[in-house]
Design a protein around this nucleic acid. Sequence first.
DNA 1: TCTGCGTTTTAGATCGTTCTAAGTTGCAGG
DNA 2: CCTGCAACTTAGAACGATCTAAAACGCAGA
Lengths: 337, 337
Amino acid sequence: MNTKRPTLEDIASVAGVSRATVSLVVRQSPLVAEHTRLKVEKVMADLDYVRDIGAARLRNNSSRTVGVIVPNLVNSFFTEFLTGVEQVMREQDRVVLLANSEDDPRRQDEILQRFRGHGVDGMILCPAAGTDAALPGRMQRWGLPMVQALREVGAQETDYAGADYVAGVGLAMQHLTALGHRRIAFLSVRAMTSAKAERLKGFSMALAKSGAIDAGIIEADLTWEGAALAANAVLALPARPTAVLCFNDVLAAGLMLGLRRADRQPGREMAVVGLDDLPLAELTYPPMTSVAMCPARIGTEAARLLTRRLAEPGRPIERFIQFPTLMVRESSGTKIV
Amino acid sequence: MNTKRPTLEDIASVAGVSRATVSLVVRQSPLVAEHTRLKVEKVMADLDYVRDIGAARLRNNSSRTVGVIVPNLVNSFFTEFLTGVEQVMREQDRVVLLANSEDDPRRQDEILQRFRGHGVDGMILCPAAGTDAALPGRMQRWGLPMVQALREVGAQETDYAGADYVAGVGLAMQHLTALGHRRIAFLSVRAMTSAKAERLKGFSMALAKSGAIDAGIIEADLTWEGAALAANAVLALPARPTAVLCFNDVLAAGLMLGLRRADRQPGREMAVVGLDDLPLAELTYPPMTSVAMCPARIGTEAARLLTRRLAEPGRPIERFIQFPTLMVRESSGTKIV
DNA sequence: TCTGCGTTTTAGATCGTTCTAAGTTGCAGG
DNA sequence: CCTGCAACTTAGAACGATCTAAAACGCAGA
């Protein structure tokens, strides 16, 4: 019943060759003669041979395994990213070890140790909020190649794939000011990450450039419920904003819900703009103006950066920055007086 | 720079004991004397020892690795499920190998072989549409324990965790008929899975029980765009349905969008009910009546079923069926005449 | 001092693969 | 007939852990 998997030895003895020859066949070496190869492949197929990659790694030090750590698996920003990573890895015959740090640096450390123990060839890390800036250096000392994605800690010591959040916020702000908005609020999150820092930077840069007024920065939990609750705080801002730019689409959707609960029409009485352009942006009411960051594309690029680094460890640091696109829908309303 | 990780041998020589003793310490064996244990643990900490699980597996045949295959990583039904699985596995010090079959049985087979090669201890499989019913038997012959989740193929030969889709559809239909609807349509998907079969079964059972009329079954692509396009087909149904039950929330959201594009108010001119109660159900307009299936809970139960099976391979087949809950919001409208 | 027994420790084989270095072939050229 | 070389093939030692069986140690009792 629970029959053991055949090994190289088994194949070898049936095919009447040595273990080493079978190994060469498995690895598609050109050293082996055509007729031997065919004979061995036949036996492998008959016995349903599956190469033990763990044992192989022990000898040649390549597990064809990469670790991916994300802070969240519910937000589709991260799952689209993950889809991109997984797809490229699958094409390259690699396997993805997945874990969710829940934005907790301690958990993230545990996961890293565990992945290290499993012999991953490299890591794609979306660092948890509060990750020690020394982590990239530590991983380098471990000899564990890493690509950071979507967020970044440390002084640009590793490859990185992300989006230009500053520019993204700029596009959104430009859109709002062009519509005539002068008092703009920012609905942010509590957890501090490079992604948040960049967005805030983009916000103040855009304010400076356009001469619009910072109507206040509200912080909410990163859930739509949190954002819905924050609607009242936004409405209570003394500067009376006419538009709110949101950290991401989840918050924007929640905010619109909260506004409606407070009997304000998002898009008419208050312009709302999201960031990320998740699929849900088209399903909200009114459909949401947002800034597309293409997380799936960032995922494929992160995966490619990692495989390049694995192939050539000494190569210079590389960065992929996705330029965002503004998607105008209805939540930002029309030109105001 | 790229210093190799220390091995048991390294620890042993520094601590002045044998490799075997260090191995016992690593595995927290009670056989080792207190003072030796402390000494060895000190050295392990100093040298930053990480146990090589791959090498361990080679000898003792437990990789503490499980494979998870889902058909889709964008639909949050599956990612919530995945969150549940990952969490339990993390608590049990196991690692998750993730892959996306994209609902393609060929791809799924490739992934299974790859995971087999990586020596996974077991699998949690959400079988792709069109999966051969013989797969569970084949995996059993491989000696690869598996739990099916959310969907199922074969004759209940494996552990299974899922939701009671028949009952879920029943709840939704009961709600609609109680509101006075007599002509009800079903917006379905093209791909055939056990989940679809159960829902259709629930639909006809509920029709029979309530005496309502099957106003037609429309099939759409499993995207909200597909559902939006299907809105016209729904409106063109000769039976003129007053309510539509949808395969899941993604389709329901898309359908509502399509209805609005065709100038029909979902919830007023056409009742719409979804299944799954994804987070987006509260964000649509009007908020969506749906049936909660608690995929995260199903995920944790699937993980527990697998670890139980791994601990005790001979135990009888077990099934976990989550009972669904109706979440009434506004898209189903109010009582009609 | 020696025996016996329980507690700790260890040498050496082993898991399934890959690598190294050396071994076979077969055949053309001297 | 021998030599040299290309084209294959292979024995045996790794890799880093665990397991088995046995050895070393400590100590009480004779």
